[in-house]
């Protein structure tokens, strides 16, 4: 019987501070036992429990892409007990990863379709995983037009800045970066909230176009009417939820929205599915 509670031991290989307020760091982990990397075979959109012995576990979306080999990456906002401790850890430290957990963005359905990715703040992590996955030379031809709309409070709060710029320079991806406000005269991207930019730049919601939306509740609330207006049907709006979790395998009972568990039946749901469940997220 495979014990689903035992984490794979990992070593912190690299820590990168992402934002100007230092509240977000990206951790690159390497598996202590190389065979564990194979067992930890994941799809873009899944999450894992990061386990710090003696402190606790925390569910975090996987920021690396399955096409990136030899490591896994997570971007972590310093907020509670485990994430605060994690922010004090150093390269070389040993901890654990349990997963991959949950479902993923519906990549089979998305093949041959236009995809628009809409993200805000630090909810951009599994969206990074998705972009890297779709842009992989082996995968890019599987998708039609790709749009990415990503916003943060200020330029200094954007995640993965180098990658954002390299994506913006590509011609096989329509990159729309925005910040809430900015007084830097050299800022070349958008200024304004994500819903507004989506209204201006987002592709029309045709039969063949799917939106993946991931961000703070306020962004989702105001983006939804915009997507309605653009013609996106509820089953073509894909969202990823977060709830407090412990087990990550649908047993401990706290992350449910009605009869679905965010950890096991989600975190990815279509808006159509969410409209049939209690809004307990």
């Amino acid at each position: 019987m495979e014990n689903p509670y035992i984490p794979y031991p990992v070593r912190i290989d690299e820590i990168k501070t992402e934002t100007e307020d230092k509240s977000l760091k990206t951790f690159k982990f390497v598996f202590l036992n190389p065979e564990d990397e194979e067992k930890f075979s994941y799809r873009a959109g899944q999450f894992a429990e990061l386990s710090i012995p003696g402190i606790g576990e925390i569910p975090i979306g996987i920021a690396s892409s399955p096409t990136e080999k030899g490591f896994v990456k997570f971007t972590i906002f310093k907020t509670g007990k485990v994430t605060s401790y994690l922010h004090s850890m150093k390269e070389g430290d040993i901890m654990g990863i349990r997963g991959p957990l949950g479902n993923w963005y519906p990549w089979e359905t998305l093949e041959g379709k236009n995809v628009v990715i809409i993200g805000g703040g630090f909810a951009f992590t599994t969206l990074r995983s998705s972009i890297i996955y779709m842009l992989d030379p082996e995968n890019r031809q599987k998708f039609k037009d790709i749009h990415v709309i990503y916003g943060a409070r200020s330029p200094g709060m954007l995640l993965y800045k180098d990658e954002l710029e390299s994506w913006a320079a590509r011609d096989d991806l329509n990159m729309h970066i925005t910040v809430d406000s900015c007084d830097d005269p050299e800022w070349t991207h958008h200024t304004g909230f994500v819903p507004t930019v989506t209204e201006q730049e987002g592709p029309a919601g045709t039969e063949d176009t799917y939106a993946i939306v991931c961000g703070p509740p306020i962004m989702i609330k105001f983006t939804q009417p915009v997507l309605d207006k653009l013609g996106y049907s509820e089953d073509r709006i894909i969202m990823s939820l977060e709830n407090r979790m412990k087990c990550g395998i649908g047993m401990c009972g706290r992350c449910n929205i009605g009869k679905e568990f965010v950890c096991k039946d989600g975190p990815v749901f279509t808006l159509q599915q969410l409209n049939q469940t209690p809004k307990e997220y």
């Binding site: 012995p53 003696g54 606790g56 412990k246 047993m251 401990c252 009972g253 706290r254 992350c255 307990e280």
Partner: peptide, 28 residues
């Protein structure tokens, strides 16, 4: 329903599963 907590005692670390309850605000 249950909760999972870590504790350290002496030079050992423990991951412990405890009953929990949906009646408590901390649960979610």
């Amino acid at each position: 329903c249950f909760d999972i907590q870590d504790e350290v005692y002496g030079r050992e670390g423990f991951r412990i599963r405890n009953w929990d309850s949906c009646m408590y605000p901390l649960f979610t």
